[in-house]
Amino acid sequence: MSSRSRAALSLVVADGHREVSDTELAGALMAGEDWALTETWQRFGPMVLMTAERTLGSRTESEDAAQETFIRVFRIVKRLREPARLRSFVYSVAVRTLRSHLRHRRLRAWLSFAAPESLVEAAHFTVDFESRARLRRFYALLDRLSARDRLVFVLRRVEEMSIEEIASTMGISASTVKRSLIHASERLSAWLDADTPVARSFQGRSRAP
């Protein structure tokens, strides 16, 4: 005859779905809570993936960069002094990771004697074929910038961050950000003017409404 435990069952009312704040999420990450890993990815993953994709121009590489970013975040989150700034913390780790990727990419291109633009893929962009061709040439020009200038340019012009936000995220001074931005803009504008196919593709567009 088998014995069976008869633990009493009780009906409990579950907590309503509540948005976890960044502070709470940071606390859970520091405590090693498993759910926090998923929540952090779901909350900040799209932001990191899109910035990485715009910066690197490669979906496969941006996925790698996002993975590295979050693994770093999980490992060093205990250093975060202001848990409420978890978003900024993730972003700054992402930017450092991207900078490292850009540097490695230049090194790889140099070591393999391949043109840096050969590393760029643009097939995933959600625009027509002609625009993808333009973007590919644009990335070829971006590849000629230093990692810092390129990141500053993308964060300012594409991600539309303020100078102060970029300085804080990259750990450099605001004046360095400005210098870097001017340098990048001037060089890109000059290269674009000299790039006949791209310049021609924009002829008439400056008269756009």
Binding site: F125, T126, L135, F138, L181
Partner: peptide, 26 residues
């Protein structure tokens, strides 16, 4: 923007806009 910055060329402005618009969320 917090400080005056030199304007980009029209082609550069168009390309940065295109780049921003071309990236779809995952």
């Amino acid at each position: 923007k917090t400080t005056a910055e030199p304007p980009d060329s029209p082609a550069l402005v168009s390309l940065t806009q295109l780049l921003r618009a071309a990236t779809a969320p995952p």
